[in-house]
Amino acid sequence: MEYRTKATVMDSPAIERAVTRIAHEILEANEGASDIAIVGILTRGVCLASLLAERIREIEGVEPPVGSLDISFYRDDTAIRLNPEVHRTDIPFDVEGHDIVLVDDVLYTGRTIRSAMDAIMDYGRPRSIQLAVLVDRGHRELPIRADYVGKNVPTASRERVKVFLEENDGRTSVEILESVVGEGE
């Protein structure tokens, strides 16, 4: 399906500011960085997770451990489709006792986050799991909410929200895409 950009809802400075604010909020809520660990959900969550960790180090002088999570094996729809590419999960710290901040780019149905929580639990029993997302676009199908949100973006479910990050895409922005074919569906 072809998509074209309908609107740019965040540009690069806005994303920078959101990440900085979320870093402050995480530090405030957890009273420092000593027990937190950041886990990015592949692919763009990982990139955001390292941005957040970097920002937390600048503010607090402590860099929290960062991990990456592939949730392919935990999805509730493996019977319907497979992820074309499975990546290696890398959690280089003990989950036990940490306050885990899960990071993803877009919060939508909540199913990805449900899978990610299951995956984290298989590594041990964290003290808590918190959720940070750059964009919350609504349309939840599960009782899941984010603790830290970059921006709330009301959308129609037929639209797509895409986060572009320098490291993955060569530019940084959040865009709403709409289908070019449109009516016929």
Binding site: F73, V86, H87, Y123
Partner: peptide, 21 residues
């Protein structure tokens, strides 16, 4: 082979179980 790389990581965990199938 690439998919097996990810499963190898699972086999090194303390809880070696996935809900996938």
């Amino acid at each position: 082979l690439d998919t097996a790389e990810s499963f190898k990581e699972v086999n090194e965990r303390r809880i070696k179980k996935l809900p996938t199938l």
